[in-house]
Simulated scan of single mutants.
Amino acid sequence: MLEVKKVAYSYQEGQTILKDLTLEFKEGHVYGLLGANGSGKSTLFLSLMGLLKPQKGMIAYQGKPLSYKKKDLYIYRQEVSLVFQNPDQQIFYSIVKDDVAFALRNLGYEEAEITHRVDKVLLELGISHLKEKPVQYLSYGQKKRVAIAGALALESKWLLLDEPTAGLDPEGRRLMMSVINRLAKQGKNIIISSHDMDLVYDCCDYFYLLADGKLLTQGTKETAFIDRELLLQANLEQPWLVKIHQQFNLPLFENEQSFFSQQNKKE
């Protein structure tokens, strides 16, 4: 379990980004961390990775406070992986297969095991055909999937995705949603940070909504998005499935697929 316990963080005096924030992430769930730009989502992710140390409160993993010793963080980051919003921040090698293998080689894995893991995650993400391709010729969406592949190759227990659909065209967004849903079905523990309400509604089963560095509200699909006025105050919109549920007295569908499946049955 990952825990955020009364965490506060400021980049400079008078500019507090996280304010006494307490959240709990249990295994077996896909969490949505929602908030408008400037709400503290990225700062929280950097704190969860030990890249920032809270000035108050603490991050805990498996019931123990996070240790900031280099050796301890090295071990921790094999279990908790972050995929940055901009994939260029974590792609280092010129060829796809070498980049995905980068962390495994640093950890001293045997080449046979590295090859097995790289081939496995490239297949899972539908990018096996890019294995030998130079990264410079990839689209932005392809780079995002390569970055995710590098994290998955570590077989981390937790995967943190920062704005996974940012900068993608509609087709790229659809592919990314498919990847996330497939990983969720495989039992991967995932936390998605985003202001894309429809993406997170579709992919996640529990939600934390942030505003101005504080917890605005939390809950399931049935509870987290019901108060439209509260969301608007935080510069957030209701997911479209929640809107039609409230405005047209329709059932609250779990995702887009279930909604359109129901409509097709009516026809």
Rank of each mutant, 00 (worst) to 15 (best):
L2N: 06
Q15V: 15
L21W: 05
T22W: 11
F25D: 02
G28T: 04
H29A: 12
V30F: 01
Y31E: 08
L34S: 02
S39E: 01
K41W: 01
K41S: 08
S47A: 14
L51M: 14
L52F: 11
G57F: 02
Q62I: 05
K71P: 02
D72I: 06
L73Q: 04
Y76M: 14
V83N: 06
D88F: 04
I91G: 04
K97M: 12
A101H: 03
F102N: 09
A103S: 15
E111D: 15
I114S: 03
V118G: 04
E124D: 15
E124R: 12
E132R: 11
P134L: 07
V135Y: 10
L138V: 12
S139Q: 11
K143C: 09
K143R: 15
L154H: 09
E155C: 08
D162Q: 12
E163D: 13
S178K: 14
V179N: 00
I180P: 01
R182A: 15
K185S: 14
Q186Y: 00
I192Y: 00
S194H: 05
S194A: 09
Y201E: 04
Y201L: 02
C203A: 15
D205R: 03
F207A: 03
F207C: 08
F207H: 02
L209T: 11
L209W: 00
K214P: 03
T220W: 02
F225G: 04
L230I: 11
L232I: 13
Q233Y: 06
N235L: 11
E237A: 11
E237C: 06
P239V: 04
K243S: 13
I244G: 08
Q247Y: 09
N249H: 14
E254Q: 13
E256N: 11
Q257M: 06
F260E: 04
S261W: 04
N264W: 13
N264Y: 13
K266L: 14
